[in-house]
Design a protein around this nucleic acid. Sequence first.
DNA 1: TTATATCATACAAATCCTATAGGAATTATA
DNA 2: TATAATTCCTATAGGATTTGTATGATATAA
Lengths: 151, 151
Amino acid sequence: MKISHRGEYALKCLMALSFNYGKGVVQLRSISEKEGIPYKFLEQIMIALKQGGLVKSQKGKLGGYQLSRSPEEISLGEVIRLIDGPLAPLGNESELKKLVKERGRHSGLYAVLLDVRNACSAILDKQSLRDICVKTIELQEKGTEAYMYFI
Amino acid sequence: MKISHRGEYALKCLMALSFNYGKGVVQLRSISEKEGIPYKFLEQIMIALKQGGLVKSQKGKLGGYQLSRSPEEISLGEVIRLIDGPLAPLGNESELKKLVKERGRHSGLYAVLLDVRNACSAILDKQSLRDICVKTIELQEKGTEAYMYFI
DNA sequence: TTATATCATACAAATCCTATAGGAATTATA
DNA sequence: TATAATTCCTATAGGATTTGTATGATATAA
Ligand code: FES
Ligand code: FES
């Protein structure tokens, strides 16, 4: 698995929406500027996130985006799969399983790669956007409020 | 991390050399045909593996390649790093560590990505080429000898 | 001398990624 | 109603990366 710029932008943007969950919509312009993400590029990413059911939008003036579920119901794994594909170093879970079962000349190799994909999934499917918020806040120095986004 | 065709070819080729360790050199033509790897592409990959110190070559007629260390002294991690770069979903270990320590707006996110890279490294740096040989043989049906390469 | 292999570089083709552009549709507000 | 601000949608350019081919040089066993 590899996280592209596109994927990193998506994650950062969703973190911004997580910090603002329950406070209405946030506009892309604001996120784009704060995170240094090219505006028109971000627009495309958000369309994908919307089609994937992670965010919902409000059109028109004063429109914007918000999470469509609470941050604790969205895992990192779900985001990364949506934007950058399977969480495996090669192929995907079922493909790797098949290669192992075929018992070919490299089944041992694929078995280890399947272990890797399972280890990655175990972490990324467990960590929710909310967990990341908490972790980030914990990592801040006491007294700093760098994690505050748009309030 | 993502394993490219190039990386997969390298791993398969090194497995062939592992199964033949101690029996002299193996020629690329043979590996290329058996594994379905484009011959001239494989040549390039082998040069990289040689420069990385994983294999040594014998030139001229009856030449070929062999592992420069025993299969148990070469880890999957070392191979993948050499061909496809760092074992992290984003950047590399020291870069991720730095991003976490900076305590920026996304330190929590990078902390989890560092966990992922650590999980991947833990597996791939531990598994040696010999381990893969053993695993592959174990996965074969009794009586089959599909793992036998060039004997 | 010949056949066969590695070594090295250059380059072509295809694919993927990043980013930009232009405009349509929608909505709040003056 | 007019205007401004925003999401929505598609096309496409440019660049980077990956994959593979071509050509020839060099080394060595027979
Ligand atoms: S980071 Fe690629 S599968 Fe784990
Ligand atoms: S497979 Fe990409 S870092 Fe684990």
